[in-house]
Design a protein around this nucleic acid. Sequence first.
DNA 1: ACGAAACTAGAAACCGCTTACTACGGTCCT
DNA 2: AGGACCGTAGTAAGCGGTTTCTAGTTTCGT
Lengths: 364, 364
Amino acid sequence: MSEATIADVARLAGVSSATVSRVINRNYPVAESTRARVEAAISELGYVANAHARALAGATNRTVAIIINDLIDPFYAYIARGVEREATAQGRLCLVCCTHGSHEQELALIDLLHEQRADAVILVGGAYEDRAYAAQVAKRARALHASGSTLVLCGRPGVGDDAPTKVVEYDNEGGAFAITDYLITQGHRRVLFLGGPSLFSTTIARLAGHRRALELRGLPYDESLISPGPLSRRFGYERTRELLAEGPGFTAIFAANDNVAAGAMQAIEAAGLSVPADISVAGYDDVPLAQELRPQLTTVRIPLEEMGRQAVQLALGVADGSDYLSPVRTTTRVGTSIVVRQSVGAPSAKKALAAASGRKRAGR
Amino acid sequence: MSEATIADVARLAGVSSATVSRVINRNYPVAESTRARVEAAISELGYVANAHARALAGATNRTVAIIINDLIDPFYAYIARGVEREATAQGRLCLVCCTHGSHEQELALIDLLHEQRADAVILVGGAYEDRAYAAQVAKRARALHASGSTLVLCGRPGVGDDAPTKVVEYDNEGGAFAITDYLITQGHRRVLFLGGPSLFSTTIARLAGHRRALELRGLPYDESLISPGPLSRRFGYERTRELLAEGPGFTAIFAANDNVAAGAMQAIEAAGLSVPADISVAGYDDVPLAQELRPQLTTVRIPLEEMGRQAVQLALGVADGSDYLSPVRTTTRVGTSIVVRQSVGAPSAKKALAAASGRKRAGR
DNA sequence: ACGAAACTAGAAACCGCTTACTACGGTCCT
DNA sequence: AGGACCGTAGTAAGCGGTTTCTAGTTTCGT
């Protein structure tokens, strides 16, 4: 039950504890013969240093923490993997915490991790636009900063310019623009934007990109073609089923993420229609599910793992290399790209007609 | 950069540091007025206790660690989720580490977590049968035990009776038995066992269950129908393709896990055959992928998340409830059950014939 | 009104390790 | 030969809490 301490080792080796510490840390010259004796004592006692005492006495904790929504969700899991890998590469341990969607839990976790003196706390995932909440996060960012740690926002909006945070973003607006434009290029004129909580940061950005593409192509932005909701497969299924029953006023669906797209595809199939012959579907995120669907889903790829790595590098102030003269970076943006698979095609004449009539109805 | 300490709070509140500690921990009576003053001081300074100092001074670290292969793999992710949730429920933080398949990394991580004085270290996933390696793990189990921590083996074989570990098992042999028996009941006589590294603990157990079912039904155990290999989709695909080209001597495939099954199904489809009309396929694990495949995969379900929870409860010695008189449990076994979906059917007469001829060839 | 019991609060001893500072013997150089 | 240096090793002061004792006040009971 009681562990050997550095003092025990010192006694056994006939040296002082300082010498043992030096042998372990190799940060001070120690005679070869002494070193040998100390190492023998260490292995005889099975001595393992106490990380807490070590951290207390000055050395850093060597831990990076990441706060995500849920480990199962591949979107988060990939980011977590990037963080974990980079943390390991930097000789850090990785603490993974899940909020399961609760804001209070998230704030509580930041505090807990602050107590743990993590080298960095990485906060992942979209957030609701909520000023009070942002203020809470900003406050904690300052607290962390005060104790030499860093709060990194990964794929979520900033919390005010004065908050000392670092940010890793990805191009939500650009990806949405690109894929909407792709749909338009394929001939679609009436595209349903499906899912995504209205006040959610990523929804807002994706919707903005969608809208910009429409405007650039001179297509109307029709409120009736925007159908926000949860980012779940169930919602995608249910809502699509309802809309299909009403007589669809669209030939393509741009789902706010792949889950929603999967639900939509299921509903379309269930209605006896086919993807993409009757209705095209595009998603966002490119999670593994996208490749399992039949037809395989055309979607927007986000370099998730890379984001995780960047977050750690940013937090730890790892030199960028590309421009080593610049001061420590505080923001990184990774690009998104569309992945063309089989779920998008040209609208059929018949369906386009139906869409047009649906449009009249919607316009009534 | 410099954080407020308990002494700062004490000074500001005009009390001793002992009193501040008591206010925080609520483990000793403190006058209401004093408490108020201390709390005011704490919030004014934004004081956050130093977890290391705290851990050093006696209180536990309140951290549970889990070591898995890879965060992305749903098999591990579900277990990790169970661990994370239960740890949170027990007021612990959860440290997640990945080995990415490396033994040395695994051992190194155990040491690292030992240093961190984690309340428990949970080791997940099958392991190669390797005496030297088991001895290494046993040694660390003893070291952890000596410092009041616990090593929990989750879904992997023990490392010797004298090693102070706790174990959460699932019924690999029984699940394999059940599903093989199910295949036989459906009329299959020649079942290919596909994938799983030969010396891997889970492979061995699954193969044993498979074999027992064959024997119980009076069917021969044919070495040529055992085709071990990696637990990957690629392997499932490639190997199935090869075997199909040789003329299959089987009407059903029992894959060592769902990934392998997915690969096999792909290969069967690519060969112009259909599942289950021509060849039936069964998997193991019931990861989400199983439900995405078409036809949906008949497989063996393991209560992964539950295993994670059990591991934490076991480690922390949480009362079982069911028999609170018993001493602290040291082993838990969770059951497995087969999930019938659409990938298994009766063998067609024609294919059964082909299988029989294949059998002659194989026997030659 | 007096002593005991019940509250509160402080002093100080750790917890186990790092590290600045000090000490000491031997080399090397002038 | 004597002092400047170099290479090693020890001493001890923290790091920031927790907790055991000790002690001063009240509150009561009789």
